[in-house]
Design a protein around this nucleic acid. Sequence first.
DNA 1: CATGAATGAGCATTCATTCAT
DNA 2: AATGAATGAATGCTCATTCAT
Lengths: 208, 208, 208, 208
Amino acid sequence: MSITIESNVKDPERIRERRAQIVAAAVKLFTEKGFHRTTTREIARESGLSNGAVYEYVKSKEDILFLVCQHIHREMRAQLEASLSPAESGAAQLRQAIRAFYGVIDRMQTDILLIYQESKSLPSPFLREVLREEQAITDIFERLLRAGVADGSIVVAEREIPLLAHDIVVMGQMWAFRRWGLRDVPFTDFVEQQVAILMQACRARLEG
Amino acid sequence: MSITIESNVKDPERIRERRAQIVAAAVKLFTEKGFHRTTTREIARESGLSNGAVYEYVKSKEDILFLVCQHIHREMRAQLEASLSPAESGAAQLRQAIRAFYGVIDRMQTDILLIYQESKSLPSPFLREVLREEQAITDIFERLLRAGVADGSIVVAEREIPLLAHDIVVMGQMWAFRRWGLRDVPFTDFVEQQVAILMQACRARLEG
Amino acid sequence: MSITIESNVKDPERIRERRAQIVAAAVKLFTEKGFHRTTTREIARESGLSNGAVYEYVKSKEDILFLVCQHIHREMRAQLEASLSPAESGAAQLRQAIRAFYGVIDRMQTDILLIYQESKSLPSPFLREVLREEQAITDIFERLLRAGVADGSIVVAEREIPLLAHDIVVMGQMWAFRRWGLRDVPFTDFVEQQVAILMQACRARLEG
Amino acid sequence: MSITIESNVKDPERIRERRAQIVAAAVKLFTEKGFHRTTTREIARESGLSNGAVYEYVKSKEDILFLVCQHIHREMRAQLEASLSPAESGAAQLRQAIRAFYGVIDRMQTDILLIYQESKSLPSPFLREVLREEQAITDIFERLLRAGVADGSIVVAEREIPLLAHDIVVMGQMWAFRRWGLRDVPFTDFVEQQVAILMQACRARLEG
DNA sequence: CATGAATGAGCATTCATTCAT
DNA sequence: AATGAATGAATGCTCATTCAT
């Protein structure tokens, strides 16, 4: 939002295209070998650009990492919004949102892991922006929780809401960052168990 | 089972001492600047050893990272064991263990964050060992859950236990890795809310 | 004789205009950051031309430096000629010329410094041309000295004339290249003292 | 004096040796191709060190340039001091010093040219130091002028002394930086003519 | 055992110049 | 004539690791 990566190139359409190539290449490589072990040359080669061309669209390697994080967050947001659907009660809406979110997490596992593992390498203005985005996702659930409280379909104290929202997010993201420990848990079981725990924490009436 | 780091030096006592120095220095530096941005020279200087001496007790920089993770895990285990105390029921025991564990997390915040952020840089045999250790901690809670089920003080399906144990761990560790989002939550509130959610998930009778 | 810089463009008027833009931009940038630290992109931007356009009027970055030196020398010559005025004796003429020249130096301080500091980066045919121009200025003073000898208003041996002419030039240019050491000397004092020394060296009768 | 270049290496004797190698190589290369066109790799090769070794004794390429300037200035000072000899009057002392200084300039022509052409590439704390050194040389002549004034062997107004000292220096250094224009002047003639002009400027009584 | 100087492959980044449009 | 995106060789510098002493 507030941060804009500079480019020497003027044509915005071209910037979009080339950065998409760079980001695609970087996501692949960062996922495989991590940010530090990936060289800018590899990113150039993988994205089909010359060494120099990369630096026409980006000012530093950290810029690329930021672009990657930004791209992933946008994709997450888009997918999340696409899978939210209206529901009768606040509780039902919340449950549906959690399920939708966890679905996104499942589909974007490696991307989410990438952000978890590499965002610490961002220069701090970028990191702040990434955390802001992470908080924005949490805020979605805060709002849903308050809506449920408002219509009486769930019961949570206001002061418990922030942490509960974080729980919702983290209990989903662990599907990505604790993959090693959850090999034996089928995804549906995972979702249902987490949803059950969370809805119970909201003292929601049992529903479909 | 447990991985052994090679050393050119014979005297095991000396190895222990020197590695303790190296680990202390590395923990400090990795926490401040991260694994990749810390140089072996800096570790040598900070630990009071010469560049060469470090390599008498360790074969590579990754070895140091592993030693650091190992040290932190040991410390965690020790602190956890020290703060566990017997309780009447399995539920009470579990609740107490969670509280104890969360206390450890609070005290070892930066160390836990270090493992979260840097363990991905470990060569895979080391990484496996670290994850094994992480699993071992989770296993402690699996056992406590089963004990509670056994004495009827909590009600959880066997198939739900592994994930629930992960939840217990993750919902505590987020105190370390989501510090940026929990600034406004006092630690005691944090613990009590998480414990409440978790005990409720266990259908434990409400107790002290 | 005089070197000609090639251009892809035919229209000589256009060449003149564009090169004037390029030179103006380059003088500004070279003065601020030096030749090596200035990029051709910066020159393009500052001159309002595109990267490519610059290379339509110039074959290399060195060409630009040469154009800059040429421009400065022309400007110096023009200013010098404009401020020369006839005088009664050769000695008076010489004194007047030195004062005029030093005035030019004072006004063109940064340009003269630029030539002093950057001309060494010219390819040797260009450098030779620049030195020829520098010699041409010196020659002006040689001629004035000979004129003064001829009318008897000064007394210098023919063999001393070349060096004396160099002294006249250098003792003025130091106002530009020894700026750091002459902070406390007012310009008028500077001129008068140097003129006194030089005229005395010519054994000129004391006048106005 | 006030500036110390850092080194990773501890042994001061070794630092001295290695830096001498580096400086010797750099003087040669900078003289041949200039500072900017010389690469650190070339300096390493020429000095018989590895790329990395150079950076054990120096923190940056600019450090090398500074070391070079420092070395040249020390050498100049040493030679100058070695060739100064006592004289009867202040005027005689001054004349002798100028001759000695010009002899040094003749012997160190290329080095002096190097400082003239490349010192502008120094980071400003280094540049200040170099200019301080240049001023120190000028100060020597200020002192000699005052001594001459004091014993009555020369006549100069106090306020004329600083510029006169600069003239002494610059009128010698031009032997190095105006080499192209002085090809036909024999060194002895050069010295005698300059000395004559300068001593005359001091209104010194004609002496041997 | 310890030291610390030396190594050199490796990396991010720059920039003069070209050339398709 | 003009544009501006693309190129890629070149550069200064780093740092894990080794090894002679």
